[in-house]
Structures are given as structure tokens and as C-alpha cells.
Amino acid sequence: MLRWFHEWGSPKAFYLRSGKMLPWLACLTLVLLTVGLVWGLLFAPSDYQQGESVRIMYVHVPAAILAQSSYAMMAIAALIALVWRLKIADAAVQTAAPLGAMMTLLALATGSLWGKPMWGTFWIWDARLTSTLILFFLFVGVLALRSASGQGRNAGRAASVLALVGLINLPVIKYSVDWWFTLHQPASFTLTERPAMPVEMWAPLLVMVLGFYCWFALAWILRLRLEVLQRERRSEWVQRLVSP
């Protein structure tokens, strides 16, 4: 385990190894997203209540799932960066924050577009919507703190602390927003209570979720590689790589 950490943790090893994985991951992402989108948007049945607009689900649900899990991934990277002081983990926190913020924004935007035909409004202070919005601000906080911290050796540590405190706080925020909602106004809308989804609908959804995960991994690795090159620009191996 430690050895594995050590091997992947060095920026050079990460750069060279991830380079070999990249084409495979890119192909997988492309296939999954294409299959999922075509299947979901063209061939999956429309909902008997929601009609064609249910197809927004094939983008919205993967984005929302990824928004939450990318925060967890970022916080795990932050923990590794704080405890083992791996350079690569610090770069991972820095590059995950904008991606996570983008995913959260996508979930919010598609959700609001779905809300208009279904609920008759773009925005409603529903518990889930509110906690997703708060999640967006948590991402923005980490992003802002990281970019204000500069490039020093310890620059990323404050952002890592913030990401970890955020991870511990997320359940508290989630539950408090739930209580606020459930006791504040009657539950007129529920996002989850749908008649059990038929296979023809959840199969393309599953493909899309996997595709989104692959896309996220791909985008994360690409950004991480760029970040590694920038940070290690004075080292010998980067010099050799850039000017052969």
C-alpha cells in the first residue's frame, strides 16, 4: 500500500503512468457518453407523466451524483495531502475544486430547466436544491482559498483543511436543511418518489453515470498532468520532455 502510494505519489511517475492510461480512458468515456446520450435521448421511453422532458434526467442525475462524490474525492485527496504531504495530492485538491464546482453548477442548471416544465418554476427552496447550492459554495470556497494562497510549498494546506472541515460539515448542513424544509413548508414536491423506474430507463441512466465518472477521471487527470508540468517546470525530466 505504502509502496503503491510512493510510486504514484511522485509527480514524474504519475505523469508517465497516467499518460499510458489516457487513451484507454478517453475511448471508454467517449463510448459510454455516446451510447448513454443516444440511448437516453432517442430510444428510451418517455415518462407517462412527465413526457419527453424526463430525458433531462440523463444529464441531471449523473451530474448531481458526481457533484457529491467529487467533493468526497477532493476531501480524501486533501486528507492525503495533509497527512502524508504528497505533492500530487495537493495538486489533486487544487484541480478537483473547479471540476466539482462545474458539476454542481451543471446539476443546478439542468435541475432548474427540468423544474420549469414539471413544477412550473425554475427554482424552489426545496431541501435538495438548497443543499446542492450550498455544496456549490463549498467548492467555490476551496477554489477561492486555493487560488489566493499562491504557489509556495505549503500554499495548498489551508485549502485542504477547509475541504476536510467541509466534508465533516456536509452531513450537518444536509440534515439541518432537511429539517428546515420538512418542518417549514408542506412537502408538495418530492424529487425521488417516482414510480419504480423500468429497465429501459435506468439502464441508459446507469451508462450515463458511468460515463460521467469516466469523464470526471479523464478531466481530472488531464488537469493534474498540466498542473504537475507547471509545478515541476524546473526539474530535469520536464525540461527533457519539453525540449527533446
Binding site: I134, F137, L138, G141, A144, A148, A158, N169, I173, S176
Partner: peptide
């Protein structure tokens, strides 16, 4: 503590901390 000594620290602080105060 997280923002002390940063260039735009005082502008940053509310942005970082306000979400945690929501509960």
C-alpha cells in the same frame, strides 16, 4: 486563521465561512 496573511484574505473569509454557519 485560514485566511490570515493572504492578499485578499478579508474579502475571502465570508465566502469560506458563511456556508458553515447555515446549520
Amino acid at each position: 486563521m485560514l485566511t490570515v496573511g493572504l492578499d485578499r484574505g478579508s474579502a475571502l473569509l465570508p465566502l469560506l465561512i458563511a456556508p458553515f454557519l447555515i446549520p
